[in-house]
C-alpha cells in the first residue's frame, strides 16, 4: 500500500512540474493526448493486464463516449450531462455485450471484441445524418453555466487531474479483495470459481469499468479537440491502445501510463524522420517487445531490484 501511495505521488508531482518543461502549445497538446490515452490504458490494463481478458474493441467505447458528447451537446445538452449520458450508455452496452462474449476465451474473445468495435465504428461512419459520417463532426467546448474549459493550459490540468483520479481508482481497486479476485481469474479461472469468485460477474464488472473509463476519456478528447472523427472509434485505435498497455507492461498501472505516454510521444518525435516514421516506429515496437517481453516497466523494475542487491 505504501508503494501505491508513492506511485500516485510520483505521478501527481510529475504532472505538476511538467509544464515547466513545456515551452509551447504544441507540447501541451502532446501531453494532453498522452494523458487521455493513459486514462484509457489504465482502465484497459485492469481488463487485459490484471484479469487476463483481451479486448480489441475498446476504441469503440472511446468513440461512443466522444460521439455521445458531440451529438448531445449539439442538441443543447450541458456538457457534463452529455458526458455522463455517454458513460451510462457505454456502461449499459458493455454490460449487455459482455454477458455473452466474456464467456469466450483467448483468441475467440479477441475476435468478438474486435467485431464489436468494428461494428460500432461502421455504424458511426455510416449513420452520417447523426454523426457527420466519415468527415466527423464539430464538438462544443466543455462547459457549464457560461464557464468553460478553454485553451491547452486549462485542459492540461483537467486531463492531469482526471488521470491522477483514474490511477488512484485503479490502484485502490487492485489492492482490494476485488483486485485479488480479478488477478485470480487471470491465474486460474477454475480455481477462482471454486474459491467462490463469481468469475462471470467479475469479468463483466471490469469490462464495464474499463469501457466507462474509455467513454469518459473519449468525451474529454472530443471536447478538447472540438472535433470527432470515426477513426477514433476504429480498429487501428483499438490496436494502438492494446499496444500501449503491453508495451508499458501488463499488470502494472504505472506501466500502462508509461506505455501510453511513450507511444503517444514517440510518433511525434519520429515525424522528423518523415518517410521513415512508420518503419522506425515498427522497428522500435518490435525491438522493445523482443528485448523486454514483459513490457517496459516490469523489466526495468526487475533490473532496478537486481542492481540494488
Amino acid at each position: 500500500m505504501r508503494r501505491d501511495t508513492a506511485v500516485l505521488l510520483l505521478l501527481a508531482v510529475g504532472i505538476a512540474v511538467l509544464p515547466f518543461a513545456l515551452p509551447n502549445r504544441y507540447f501541451y497538446d502532446v501531453a494532453i493526448l498522452a494523458g487521455i490515452n493513459a486514462i484509457v490504458c489504465v482502465g484497459l490494463n485492469l481488463l487485459i493486464g490484471y484479469t487476463g481478458q483481451i479486448s480489441l474493441g475498446h476504441a469503440g467505447f472511446f468513440g461512443l463516449g466522444a460521439y455521445a458528447s458531440a451529438i448531445l451537446t449539439g442538441y443543447g445538452c450541458p456538457a457534463p450531462a452529455a458526458m455522463a449520458a455517454g458513460a451510462v450508455i457505454v456502461g449499459a452496452l458493455a454490460a449487455l455485450v459482455g454477458r455473452p462474449i466474456l464467456r469466450l476465451k483467448g483468441h475467440y474473445l479477441a475476435m468478438a471484441t474486435l467485431g464489436m468495435g468494428i461494428i460500432i465504428s461502421i455504424v458511426i461512419t455510416t449513420e452520417d445524418r447523426v454523426t457527420g459520417g466519415p468527415d466527423g463532426m464539430a464538438v462544443a467546448p466543455f462547459g457549464l453555466l457560461g464557464w468553460s474549459v478553454q485553451g491547452e493550459e486549462a485542459w492540461y490540468w483537467v486531463i492531469g487531474a482526471s488521470l491522477v483520479a483514474t490511477v488512484a481508482l485503479a490502484l485502490n481497486l487492485i489492492a482490494s479483495p476485488v483486485g485479488r479476485a480479478l488477478r485470480a481469474i487471470h491465474g486460474s479461472e477454475t480455481a477462482a470459481e471454486v474459491m467462490g469468485v463469481d468469475v462471470a460477474r467479475y469479468k463483466r464488472m471490469v469490462f464495464v469499468l474499463s469501457a466507462v473509463l474509455a467513454a469518459l476519456a473519449g468525451s474529454l478528447a472530443a471536447h478538447y479537440s472540438g472535433f470527432v472523427s470515426p477513426a477514433k472509434a476504429g480498429f487501428m485505435h483499438s490496436i494502438e491502445l492494446v499496444t500501449m498497455v503491453v508495451f508499458g507492461g501488463m499488470a502494472s498501472t504505472l506501466g500502462a501510463v508509461v506505455g501510453a505516454v511513450l507511444l503517444t510521444v514517440l510518433p511525434q518525435l519520429l515525424t522528423v524522420l518523415k518517410d521513415y516514421e512508420l518503419l522506425m516506429f515498427g522497428a522500435l515496437l518490435m525491438g522493445t517487445m523482443i528485448l523486454m517481453p514483459r513490457g517496459l516497466l516490469p523489466t526495468l523494475e526487475t533490473l532496478w531490484r537486481r542492481a540494488r542487491i
Partner: peptide
C-alpha cells in the same frame, strides 16, 4: 521471443506489420 507470452508475440507481429508497411511506403 519464443519465451514471451502470446500477447507479447502478437504485439511483436503488430510491430512487424507496421514496419513492413513503412518499408513498402
Amino acid at each position: 521471443a519464443r519465451q514471451a507470452s502470446i500477447t507479447t508475440l502478437i504485439i511483436i507481429t503488430i510491430g512487424a506489420s507496421i514496419f513492413l508497411r513503412g518499408l513498402a511506403q
